[in-house]
């Protein structure tokens, strides 16, 4: 790792101020960032840890029934604390990495990084969640801008994420056997006014909504509704672990299984 300063503010305001320094970078749980730093692929002047900010931690149910998750909340906390209020999201959090990673990794860190094979982007986009930062609210549909790219500005901090709770939802993850990220992960959420399907792991553009499937399932919520739908393999990731065709196929299978899990 290159040398950097470390700060651990206890308020959002202090964190924002610290991030104002040139080349300062926010540190969530560090489960992706620290390996990146070890490879010397990044050279921040300072890491501003968000783990000491109490107001950014925890899961709560809002008056309108939506669930808010603090940006510095670990996956393990979401897996346990959201189990009653939003079980599909809790289940997703419980499938990220491994237990030790889940004790450190945070939702804010994960979605700010927007790894194309990460689980949370599918859950956030599939739920139609709202990302709340120190300056504004961003709809999930506007937040994810392609592989490792988001709508966040320099120094902007995800303070929480607000999830509307669907009638039914399911995350189906097919493991990349080495990293255990998603080779393909599908998050399906059924709301009164329609179905949302978000896919991670599969596309070179990062997480995306499979709108054809959403339309078909909104019309008719059963596995067979997907029968004639095919994802175009052209934009899929093809690598050591699976061809483009295979990933396109898996999107269909995982979506079908998500429907089955919801009915």
């Amino acid at each position: 790792m290159y040398s950097f300063e470390f700060e651990k503010p206890s308020t959002i305001a202090d964190a924002v101020a610290a991030l104002g320094a040139e080349d300062a970078q926010a540190l969530g749980g560090g489960q992706t960032l620290i390996p990146t730093l070890k490879q010397r692929l990044a050279a921040p002047s300072a890491l501003i840890s968000l783990s000491g900010i109490a107001e950014m931690k925890g899961v709560c149910v809002n008056d309108d029934g939506s669930v808010s998750v603090g940006g510095a909340t670990t996956h393990a906390t979401v897996a346990s604390e959201a189990a009653g209020s939003y079980p599909a999201l809790a289940a997703l959090a419980g499938q990220i990495g491994d237990p030790a990673v889940r004790n450190r990794g945070t939702i804010g860190g994960s979605i700010a990084n927007n790894d194309p094979a990460a689980c949370y982007p599918a859950g956030v986009l599939g739920s139609g969640a709202t990302i709340i930062t120190n300056t504004r609210e961003i709809a999930a549909d506007d937040f994810f801008e392609g592989m490792f790219s988001t709508a966040l500005d320099e120094g902007e901090i995800i303070t929480s994420v607000r999830f509307p709770v669907p009638q039914a939802a399911s995350y189906q993850k097919f493991l990349q056997p080495a990293s255990r990220f998603a080779l393909v992960g599908v998050y399906l959420a059924r709301f009164a006014d329609g179905v949302r399907v978000a896919v991670t792991g599969a596309s070179e553009d990062g997480v995306f909504r499979w709108t054809e499937a959403e339309q078909a399932l909104t019309k008719e919520f059963r596995p067979d509704a997907l029968m004639d739908l095919r994802i175009n393999p052209a934009n899929m990731i093809g690598d050591l672990h699976g061809s483009k065709d295979y990933r396109a196929h898996l999107v269909g299978v995982m979506t079908k299984r998500a429907v089955q899990a919801c009915v």
Binding site: P35, S49, P99, A100, N103
Partner: peptide, 13 residues
């Protein structure tokens, strides 16, 4: 009390 990967956590944390 929680399991963590100590090579993936800064000492100052």
């Amino acid at each position: 009390g929680e399991a963590v990967k100590s090579c993936n956590m800064l000492a100052l944390e």
